[in-house]
């Protein structure tokens, strides 16, 4: 919300580590339940939103 907060992809939460590489923090989850939980915690901490890529990977984006 504040102007000093940057927008963009802040993190990725994935079931398959081969799906994401690159410059964002990647959280590896063992199952879907854990992925939900990590995504929730990370998104709440960052005031950001969770989007589902529907390939086993969630990305956390601040708009």
């Amino acid at each position: 919300m504040s102007s000093y907060e940057t927008s963009g992809i802040l993190a990725a939460v994935t079931l398959d580590k081969d799906l994401v590489t690159g410059g964002v923090p990647i959280f590896l989850a063992r199952n879907e339940e854990e992925r939900e939980k990590i995504a929730l915690f990370v998104s709440k901490s960052l005031n950001a939103m969770v989007h589902d890529l529907e390939n086993g990977c969630y990305i956390i984006i601040r708009h």
Partner: peptide
């Protein structure tokens, strides 16, 4: 539609968290 939020025939955004 999957994780895609829609109103009528218009796609809005992907909502990841099942709880949301």
């Amino acid at each position: 539609k999957g994780s895609l939020l829609c109103v009528g025939n218009i796609n809005f955004m992907s909502v990841g968290l099942k709880e949301m």
